[in-house]
Amino acid sequence: MKMKMHKCNSCNVYTIKDVCPSCDGDLNVIYPPKYSIEDKYGKYRRKLKEEAFDK
């Protein structure tokens, strides 16, 4: 299976194309984080999410 999401090394733009649309730079494949039952940073993500909804 080929990953569709790419990120440009030079301008940090996300795209699904084979070449960066803004600068024609090299692209890296973006992989999702691994799933873990023991979520080390879960409490921090939840805290940031609560703060975002409070504003």
Rank of each mutant, 00 (worst) to 15 (best):
M1R: 13
M1T: 11
K2W: 11
K2S: 12
K2Q: 11
K2D: 11
K2T: 11
K2Y: 13
M3W: 13
M3P: 10
M3A: 12
K4S: 12
H6D: 00
K7Y: 00
K7L: 01
C8N: 03
C8E: 01
N9G: 03
N9I: 06
N9M: 08
N9Y: 02
S10N: 14
S10L: 12
C11V: 01
C11F: 02
N12Q: 10
N12T: 06
N12E: 08
V13L: 14
V13M: 11
V13Y: 13
V13Q: 08
V13E: 11
Y14W: 07
Y14I: 05
T15H: 03
T15K: 04
T15L: 02
T15G: 01
I16G: 04
K17A: 07
K17R: 10
K17L: 10
K17Y: 13
K17N: 05
D18N: 10
D18I: 03
V19P: 00
V19E: 05
V19L: 07
P21I: 02
S22W: 12
C23V: 03
C23T: 04
C23M: 03
C23G: 03
D24P: 00
D24Y: 09
D24E: 12
D24T: 05
D24R: 15
G25A: 07
G25S: 09
L27I: 02
L27Q: 01
L27P: 01
L27G: 00
N28T: 09
N28Y: 11
V29E: 10
V29G: 00
V29S: 03
I30G: 01
I30T: 07
I30V: 15
P32L: 11
P32H: 07
P32D: 10
P32V: 04
P33M: 05
P33F: 06
P33D: 03
K34L: 06
K34R: 13
K34S: 05
K34M: 03
K34P: 03
Y35V: 08
S36D: 04
S36H: 07
S36T: 05
S36F: 04
I37K: 15
I37Q: 12
I37C: 08
E38Y: 13
D39A: 09
Y41A: 05
Y41I: 02
Y41R: 08
Y41W: 10
G42E: 06
G42N: 08
K43W: 08
K43Q: 06
K43P: 00
Y44R: 15
Y44P: 00
Y44F: 12
Y44V: 12
Y44T: 09
R45G: 00
R45F: 08
R46Y: 06
R46Q: 13
R46H: 06
K47H: 05
K47I: 01
K47T: 02
K47E: 05
L48W: 13
L48Q: 08
K49M: 10
K49P: 00
K49I: 04
K49D: 05
K49S: 09
E50M: 12
E50A: 11
E51K: 14
E51W: 13
A52Y: 15
A52K: 14
F53T: 04
F53D: 05
K55G: 11
K55H: 12
